[in-house]
Design a protein around this nucleic acid. Structure first.
Lengths: 185, 185, 185, 185
DNA sequence: ACTGGCGGGACGTCCCGTTGAT
DNA sequence: ATCAACGGGACGTCCCGCCAGT
């Protein structure tokens, strides 16, 4: 029989993830020492280590959440919603995204673990764009693949702006992006 | 009087920067331990620290070079040249760019040092775009500021693709970008 | 009044000692972490530490049992019985003996505690051998003290073999030992 | 070109081994924390780690030396010399031997590494005893294998006494051992 | 100019024992 | 009586930079 309720455990887990997110966002993966994580989370090593076997695993949990979040963003709401959501995103949270990106390039093991966790249910972006082309939503003189890539580039470029806390006029961005991908009259 | 020629000193400095670039690109800032830097550069601690007072300072020198390089890219060659240059960029080298980005967000001191070094001679992007609008090169129903930001977003998004070694059709990208920023007929 | 029977308490205590013995034998004192002890014993920290105030104290209880067991071995059954018993000993159990030995040399406090517990009823080996000499069982041109020491050496040497799971011909060993200690014709 | 002479390096290496030996002997493997090793050796972590990649490797170096030393003892000097040497052995040094023994039982990787290092040139004890039997030095109504094992047991038993700093009459021991293994008249 | 031995500090891991809940 | 969450400390590893030596 567990000593504390499942609710308590879930709450603790969320507390750890939330604090870790802030800590990683502020200091980066390396800069987020266990001591700082303890402080930001408000729990001791013993507690944190009880929920996640290592700092890397804790970070991985955040990375998976990140991946899921942004994978669904465009597919569920469409281009405009994705852009607006991204522009309104919390810079601290987005910071973690790029921190993930950093590890992605240098830590092959991390890449593998992340892929394993996020492979499930990943409908391709390309399919989505091709459907919208057939729809008449997007121009079709450019392949759906390239349309998808272009929109992704703008989204990522926007993300970088948000992370850097640089101001961006979302409506202007949308207007330009629309003229790039909408059917030529 | 120095014992060796200035040329020798410069060559050594370049050797160190080149090796460090490869090392930072491959392992990231933290992963690039001094031992690994020694190996990649082919010189010992003493030699490296003779030219750069610390690992951070060595990285800063690279960061300044990076900043200069990409600052000039667009202004000198225009949008198409910038996109093509970025697409052809060495992923390893671009890796360092985002590594710089990583430190930029977490190390205020680093930001200050980098700004000091790169502030000189930075004509604003905005001016450049406004000139091109007056030119008739770009549409003028969107502010030059927003045009510049949009192009930058695409460039950065493209850079992320290159770093991730993801394939990109440059011509399609250029076509879409052109339709976004060119004057409407 | 206790909630559970004394039998239950004793059984639990024995369960803990038995599991701990296996765990110490397999992993050594340091290697036997509390987590491993929990697993091997089948009870949780709370239960274990309810019966023994610390890991050290649990080990001490085993050490006392070990000491008693081997102290009586020779005195009760004679040399041959002792040798045969030692050769048939469980290597895991003997492993704990030498683990005890290890701590004996490094932990003065442990030595004191162990001595306190085992001082009671320890008739000297020397007396036993001298009685057997008077008996005519052992040669008397060597002091009983030295006879006792020699037999102990062989016993300990044999124990080391058993622990190392090295094969030993008990009969040959007994023959050689007999010729060493028996009266010269 | 090395910065310091080879002599210096060798001296340092010996300094580290000697200090480590004392430290392992006094505190045991686990008790010999790196801090204590630093203190006993008189050098810093950095220095020690420069000569041995890890604490385990440092210990292994000592273990190999131990193995070589005792392997040759009997084969080179005969039984009496071996017994006398063992009796005169430094208890601290012998302590390390049993520490090695401790790790031997629990650390399979350590066993492998040690075997690799000491496999070279290990003439079997058995051969040596059989030669001495043919010689007439030892009785031949017991196999050379068992003779060897018996002598080893006594040697190991003696070693345990030395480690425990228990007094031993070497001459008596030799007399008894002689009567065990010498040819019956 | 260049080497590398070395100091010393900080990190993530892991572990023991306490505590409060069941 | 038994549990598992949790605190907090100590360990081995590893790393950066200094400087003595060539």
């Amino acid at each position: 029989v567990p000593k504390v309720s499942q609710d308590h455990l879930d709450a603790r887990r969320q507390q750890i993830l939330a604090g870790a997110q802030r800590c990683f966002a502020q200091h980066g993966y390396t800069g987020a020492t266990v001591a700082r994580l303890e402080q930001e989370i408000g729990l001791s090593r013993g507690a944190i280590f009880n929920y996640f076997p290592s700092k890397q695993e804790l970070f991985l949990a955040l990375a998976i959440e990140v991946n899921r979040r942004y994978g669904r963003l465009l597919l569920e709401g469409g281009v405009e919603a994705a852009i607006r959501a991204m522009a309104a995103e919390d810079p601290e949270w987005l910071g973690v995204v790029f921190e993930v990106h950093g590890k992605l390039r240098h830590d092959p093991d991390f890449v593998r673990r992340l892929d394993e966790a996020s492979d499930a249910a990943r409908p391709t972006l390309q399919d989505w764009f091709e459907a919208k082309q057939a729809n008449g939503t997007f121009r079709d003189d450019v392949s759906g693949r390239d349309l998808g890539r272009f929109v992704t580039m703008v989204l990522n470029g926007l993300a970088l702006r948000v992370v850097g806390e640089e101001e961006t006029d979302v409506d202007a961005t949308l207007k330009l992006l629309h003229d790039a991908v909408a059917p030529r009259q």
